[in-house]
Structures are given as C-alpha cells and as structure tokens.
Write a protein that binds this DNA or RNA. Structure first.
Length: 522
DNA sequence: TTAGGGTTAG
C-alpha cells in the first residue's frame, strides 16, 4: 500500500493551495496543533466550496505535521473521496486504516461517513462491513445503510433493512421513509409502499415535499397515475421542481402525453423536465416536436446535459435521422456508457454494422467508459442485422473474456439469431443446448432458435423448441401459438399451421392487434 | 461533522 507521502508526490495535483485565503490562514498559524479545530473547519470549507483536491492536500499536510486527526478531520475528507478520481480506492482504504488507528470507528458519525464513502466509491461489501462492525449506530447510520443498498440496486434489501431497523427500536425519520419509498418504487413493491404511505400519514410526513415526490414516483411506477396525481394535487404547500418533474415523468410513463406536455408548459423547466418530455417525443416517434424541444433546450443552454443529449440521440436514431443522431452524439462533452450504447445501437439497427463496430472500437480506444451488458446487446444485435456472424462470435467472447460480463438470455438470443439467420443451425443448436443446460432459457432465446429452424427448414428441432416455449409459461400464450403457426407455415407444413390456429381458436386465444403511431404536424 | 425526492440505453 502506498504511503500518504508517496501519494502526494506522485499525484497529478500540482497546485496544493490554489485558494490564497486558505494558505494564508495556514501560514498565519504559529501553533498548529492547538488549532486543529480551525483546520478542520477549513477542510470542511474546501469541500463545501467544491475544492476536494485542496481538502485532500490540506489533510495530507495535517497528517504529515502530526496535527491531531479526529472525526471532524475525517468526515470532510471522506465526503470528498468520491469526487477525487485521481485518488482511487487506495485513499479510501488508507483513511480507513488511519481511522482505525485513531479510534474514530467507535463513533457513529465518522463511521457513517466511512460507510458512505465506500458506498459512493462503489465498494458495496466494504460499506456493509463498516455498518456491521459499528459498535454504536444512530438513525443516520441506518439511513446511510439504506441509501447504500438502494444505490447498489438492492431494493429488497433496503426494504428488509427498514423492517430490521424498526425492530431494533430505532425511530425512523423522513429521510428513512423517502429512501425506502424509492426502494419500493424501484422494485414495484406496491403493498409495502402503501404501508409506508400509511406510516407517513400517521407520523405527519405526508406533507413533506420529498416524501410526496417519492409517493408520486411509487404510484407512477406501479401504474397508478390517478393516485400519483392525487398526491400532487392533495399537497397544500407550493410544489417544487422535483415534484413537478416526478409527475411529468409519471404521466409520460402512463402514456398521458398531452397531460405531461401541459404540465411541462406550466413550469419553468429544468434539464430533467426537458429529458422527460423528450422521452415522450421518443415514445411517440415525434421528430418534429423533438426538434422543437431540442431548439428550446439549446436556447436554455441545457445541451451540456449528458442524459438529455442521450435521449436526443435516441429520438433522431429511432426516427431514422442517423446524421443528426451522430452530430448530437459528437457534441456530448461527457459521454457515458448510455451515450455510446445509444449511438452503437443507432447504427446497428439501421443495418450499418461496420460503423457500429467502429464506434465500439472508438469507445474502447477512448478508454474513459467501459462497455456493459447492454452495450454488448447493441453490438451483437448490430452484427446480427448486418450478417457479421464471425465478428459477432468474436465480440461475444470479448464480452466474456475481456470484460468479464456473464452472458444473459438476451446475449444468447442475439448469438442464436445471427447464427440461425446465417444458416449455421448446428452452431446455433449447440449454443441453444448450452442455454438450456444453464437454465437461462427465455422466450427471446426460443424465438431466435425457432426462427433459425424456420430458415433451415428443421422441423424436428423446431418442434423441440416449440415444446420448450410452451413449458416456459409465457404470459403471451397467443404470441407463442402465432410464432409456432408461422414456423409451420414457413417450412411448408400448412396442416400443422392450421392445427395450431385451431387450438388457438378453441382456447379462445387472440393475438393482441398491433398498432402504429404517426405524428401529424401542422 | 454523517443520511433522503425528479431524467437516459436492451
């Protein structure tokens, strides 16, 4: 492990005290040991004013000069850690080690700061270990644990931990309720969400803007937009931006687009509101409306917002304007994995597989963003659309071996689809067999394999796949029968196709009628 | 001095 002195020497940080008043204060301090509280206050000021590097260097200076370090010293430095990309995980571990030596871990406040640092830096297990080893926990420690769970996508753990917290006898706060409501919303846990709504009412938190916003999000996520609107209208106090945005998003999710646009028009929208209504344009494939909002976003100077631009890339791509999608993508200053995935998918779905692969290579060489499982679905799908089978197999292996991503059903479906469509039925069947063995079979995998069997006129295998599809118990039973019927028809087994249709009719199954949307602009 | 709500990709 590197020492602090080594860290400071090698660090790319070159200007330790770029804020003259801070340096001046330090220079003017003749007896620094006696002034540790003032230095701690200075540390906090650096963090509050968004100068984490200065905070770290002041901390290193204090450590080097044997100035007493306590909870008040560690808290601001720990909160600065997640914003210090150059520091890396070693800094967090070194701080943890120092806190242990100074006996700070027995106090709930610095221990909670440590938990939070690990959580925000992506070290879930370390964060939970800190909580487990805390000799004393207050309500904020519990709230930090709940936030850690939700931050790492463990909604059910959040809900369970809340009930453990209550059983322990800790009195929850509004912070607790809003965090657990977010977990209920993410996991669509309506029953527990309703219980929390009742608790919020009993304990008088229902008029809190934050709680009401969480409730709007909960009801919207559970498809109960009327209840979400009731929470919104039922609040007596003035609504804030986040709350209005929560309802705009809920209305978009519920496909109440006109209501969403109307509420948007009544507000002074920020980038989040713009993103929500752009999502509506994307759903509606309404390019003209999307362009108008893009222009307004430009005038309001919101186009440095990565999330907003990601939606714009999607709209242009979905509406077939690949050039605008690309020019929007190029203008994104801080491209994230969704920006890259969206533009790869844009080219791939237009049949421009080579361009999609070139973008993937560019993403790799640029190096600031790592591809994830979704990126590889876009890459594999791009290969499939363009018949780049060997490239597809290569990237399937790159995903596993280079990036350590375990293939999910969707990846297998892409692989089987491209092999089947390309007439490589034996290889597709081998992959399919592996998926069955692993217990990862999904309707998507079956559909891909069935289509491959259709292309290769392979009745025997097709019927095995059809049996698997039935056993999966897919909710869209009618869809399964239609696919099976089409399979028989596709290989010229008209009698089989007819029999399947007859079974459908006897069982009263009807395939939901497809629909299309067009936007008419006056 | 520690903790909470609204936005994007398959």
């Amino acid at each position: 492990m590197r020492s602090f002195s080594t860290l400071s020497r090698r660090s790319p940080i070159t200007n330790p005290f770029k804020h003259p008043p801070a340096q001046h204060l330090l220079d003017e301090m003749p007896h620094r040991d006696a002034h540790a509280p003032r230095l701690n206050a200075l540390l906090s000021a650096h963090v509050r004013n968004n100068h984490p590097t200065s905070a770290l260097l002041l901390f290193l200076h204090m450590h080097r000069h044997n100035i007493p370090l306590d909870g008040f010293t560690f808290n601001p430095v720990l909160s600065a850690c997640p914003t210090l990309p150059a520091a890396g995980f070693r800094l967090g571990y070194q701080l943890h080690s120092l806190m242990f030596k100074r006996g700070c871990l027995s106090e709930p406040i610095p221990a909670t700061s440590l938990l939070n640092m690990y959580s925000k830096c992506g070290f879930f297990d370390d964060a939970v270990n800190v909580f487990d080893e805390m000799p004393e926990r207050d309500v904020v420690s519990w709230n930090a644990l709940l936030s850690c769970y939700i931050h790492h996508g463990h909604s059910q753990l959040t809900i369970n931990a809340f009930f453990s917290m209550v059983q322990t006898g800790i009195e929850f706060t509004g912070f607790t309720l809003s965090t657990v409501l977010t977990a209920c919303s993410s996991s669509r846990s309506l029953v527990q969400g309703l219980q929390l709504h009742a608790l919020a009412f009993i304990f008088g938190y229902h008029n809190s803007l934050v709680i009401a916003t969480s409730l709007i999000d909960l009801y919207s996520s559970c498809g109960m937009i009327t209840q979400a609107m009731q929470v919104f209208t039922g609040l007596n106090s003035p609504k804030d931006t986040a709350m209005r945005n929560a309802l705009i998003t809920g209305l978009v999710q519920s496909q109440k687009y006109d209501d969403a646009f109307a509420l948007f028009a009544q507000t002074t929208p920020n980038a989040v509101a713009f993103t929500s209504v752009l999502t509506a344009c994307s759903d509606l494939l309404n390019l003209e409306h999307g362009k108008q909002i893009h222009c307004t976003a430009l005038r309001r100077d919101f186009t440095s917002d990565t999330i907003l631009c990601n939606v714009l890339v999607r709209i242009y791509a979905k509406c077939g304007d690949i050039h605008s999608a690309h020019s929007t993508f190029v203008m994104i200053d801080n491209k994230d994995v969704i920006s890259w995935t969206s533009i790869i998918d844009a080219y791939g779905s237009q049949g421009c597989g080579l361009e999609a692969l070139n973008l993937f290579k560019e993403m790799e060489s640029e190096g600031s963003v790592l591809p994830n499982a979704v990126t590889f679905i876009s890459v594999l799908s791009a290969c499939g659309h363009s018949g780049l089978i060997d490239e597809g197999i290569k990237y399937f292996n790159v995903m596993k071996n280079k990036y350590g991503i375990d293939p999910e059903a969707e990846h297998y479906a892409c692989l089987i689809d491209m092999l089947g469509k390309g007439g490589r039925i034996e290889e597709a069947w081998e992959v399919y067999g592996g998926v069955v063995k692993e217990g990862k079979l999904s309707s998507g995998v079956c559909v891909a394999m069935l289509n491959g069997c259709k292309v290769c006129m392979d009745l025997r295998r097709g019927e095995i796949v059809a049996k698997h599809m039935m056993e999966l118990g897919d909710e869209d039973k009618a869809g399964v029968y239609v696919l099976l019927s089409n399979f028989y028809a596709g290989i010229g087994r008209w009698k089989g196709a007819e029999e399947v249709r007859k079974v459908m009719e006897d069982r009263g199954l009807r395939k939901e009628v497809g629909s299309s949307v067009i936007a008419i602009c006056w």
